[in-house]
Structure formats: structure tokens, C-alpha cells
Design a protein around this nucleic acid. Structure first.
Length: 277
DNA sequence: GTCCAGGATCGGA
DNA sequence: TCCGATCATGGA
């Protein structure tokens, strides 16, 4: 991939394994929206819009400095997905089939606090409504970046809330989970930098000390927030996939990139639910 | 009215 | 250790 910089945009040329629709639509994030062939969203206090034409991706409202600081990392542009995808394809023919269709997925390096909060909201919920609640949370407690685009609320802000303050967000029983997470993060009981240096099981264990965070959400935070590809979140869909397509098989067969394998399989089956019907 | 959604928790067997 | 009911909400 090559980068071309101008005053208010960055052009990425000759992309490999990078598809915006797949990356934003594979269920890893909830705050990117498509409008007239353009994706809008924000991360780390900056907002951009993106368009894709074949192997060319244009990021608008950024520059060389911000791109190198935020977006190159956020989109994980320096990891070799071609290598990882080929490696995974060799492991299993079913996974290979999923990868042939979903190889444009990149695992975003999201803000771990945002990932934690988002996936707390995701529990026993559907994706359109998850997006609605996350958006409401940003509108009410985040900062205004641009027309209709907000930053994700700081943990300190939500830590100071009581459940009734979150009522208008319509998070339901998850409100107290969000507040507990916010308090543990803002007080330093939970430090994401420390989690990165822990063994996987230990990191999950710390995350699960938050009320309302169990194994699945912990794995999501490690995969999407800490970029730990060994994490393998199992939701109702992945459970069905493993039972139907990989009976008696452990996720260990997918090796150290099993988190990425999970994403290929999850997105593939959401596109073709009949495969496990 | 019933069922379900990228789950977790609690009580009882 | 395992199982089932329950949790708040809104759309199908």
C-alpha cells in the first residue's frame, strides 16, 4: 500500500485485504455509518469520512500528521493481513471459504474503553439497537465534533452518573454495568495498559470483575480494544457455527490468529445464515 | 400476544 | 458444576 498526502485528505493506493464495507460491517464496531457511498465516523477525538473505489481508499478531513498518529494505526494498516488470511485458509477449508468472501476485514484498533462500553451494551441486544444506544450515549455525554458526530464519552463523565441519568439512553438493565465499568476505569482499578502486559486469562479475569462483564465481552475487549488476536469471542452465532461446522473442535486449531478467524466466520455466516440453519 | 437480539447473573437442583 | 428464569427495550 502507498500513501498520498494532501492538505485535507489522504489517499491509500493499491490496498490489499482492506474493504471498508466489510471492516465496518462485520460487527466489530457500532459508530460508523454509510451515507451516499461514504462512511462517516470518529475515533480518538477525530472525525473523518472515507470512500473506496477498488483498491483506492480516500480518507477526508485528515492530513499526514493525523494519519500517522491515528488512522494508520486505527485501521491496522501495517499488519500483514494477506499473510494471516493465507495462513488461516490453509488450516481449514470452511474457514478458507469464509475468507474468500470476507478477506477485506481489518480488526480495528479501537479505544479499549469504547470497546468495553459498546460490548456491555451489546449483551442480549441486536445490532441496530446497540448502535442507537451507543449513539445516544455519545450525543448526551460526549463532545460535539461535527454535524451529528460526537466523541465517545470519557469514563470520568459516566463514572459521575447514577442510573437515572442514563435513563434517556435506553440502555435498560445495562445502565448500572456501564457505570460500574466507568468507575473502575476512571479510578484506575482497571488499567488497559496493564491488561496488555498480562497473560490472556488474567486480563480476561480482571475485565470480568466488572459487573455485567462475562467471558464473551471480555474476549471482545481483548480482541477489539487490546488487539489481542488470541481472543475468540463466542456469541450465539459463533456457538452455532462451532457446533454445526466444527463439531468437537476447539478454537485452538485456528492458532494465534483465531480472533481474526472468528471475525471471518462471524461475518460470513451473517451474510449466509442458511449455512448453519 | 410471542419471540428474539454479538450475555450475564442468580438461585436451585 | 450445570440449568433455567430473568433482566430492559424495541422491532418483527
Amino acid at each position: 500500500m502507498e500513501f498520498e498526502f494532501s492538505e485535507n485528505s489522504v489517499k491509500i493506493l493499491n490496498t490489499v485485504n482492506f474493504d471498508l464495507s466489510q471492516t465496518f460491517g462485520c460487527g466489530q464496531c457500532f459508530r460508523w455509518n454509510k451515507f451516499e457511498n461514504k462512511f462517516f465516523g470518529a475515533a480518538f477525538g477525530e472525525f473523518v469520512s472515507l470512500t473506496q473505489n477498488g483498491t483506492t481508499v480516500i480518507i477526508e478531513n485528515t492530513n499526514e500528521e493525523k494519519f500517522n498518529l491515528i488512522w494508520k494505526d486505527y485501521f491496522d494498516l501495517e499488519s500483514n493481513y494477506k499473510f494471516m488470511a493465507e495462513h488461516l485458509s490453509d488450516i481449514n477449508p470452511i474457514l478458507d471459504k469464509a475468507i474468500r468472501e470476507c478477506s477485506g476485514i481489518r480488526i480495528l484498533k479501537q479505544d479499549p474503553w469504547e470497546a468495553l462500553c459498546s460490548f456491555i451494551i451489546s449483551q442480549n441486544n441486536n445490532i441496530p439497537r446497540i448502535k442507537k444506544i451507543v449513539n445516544s450515549l455519545c450525543v448526551k455525554f460526549g463532545g460535539n465534533l461535527a454535524d451529528g458526530i460526537f466523541t465517545f464519552p470519557k469514563p470520568e463523565i459516566l463514572a459521575a452518573c447514577e442510573e437515572e441519568d442514563l435513563a434517556s439512553v435506553r440502555a435498560g438493565f445495562r445502565a448500572r454495568y456501564i457505570i460500574d465499568a466507568a468507575r473502575k476505569v476512571s479510578e484506575g482499578t482497571l488499567d488497559f495498559l496493564e491488561l496488555k502486559n498480562m497473560p490472556p486469562e488474567e486480563a480476561s479475569g480482571v475485565l470480568m470483575q466488572i459487573i455485567g462483564v462475562g467471558p464473551k465481552i471480555a474476549e471482545c475487549v481483548r480482541l477489539y480494544g487490546l488487539h489481542d488476536f488470541r481472543a475468540f469471542p463466542i456469541d450465539v452465532w459463533m456457538k452455532k457455527i462451532m457446533e454445526k461446522l466444527f463439531p468437537g473442535v476447539s478454537s485452538d486449531i485456528f492458532g494465534d490468529f483465531r480472533g481474526l478467524a472468528q471475525q471471518y466466520l462471524y461475518h460470513y455466516i451473517r451474510l449466509h445464515p442458511d449455512v448453519i440453519a
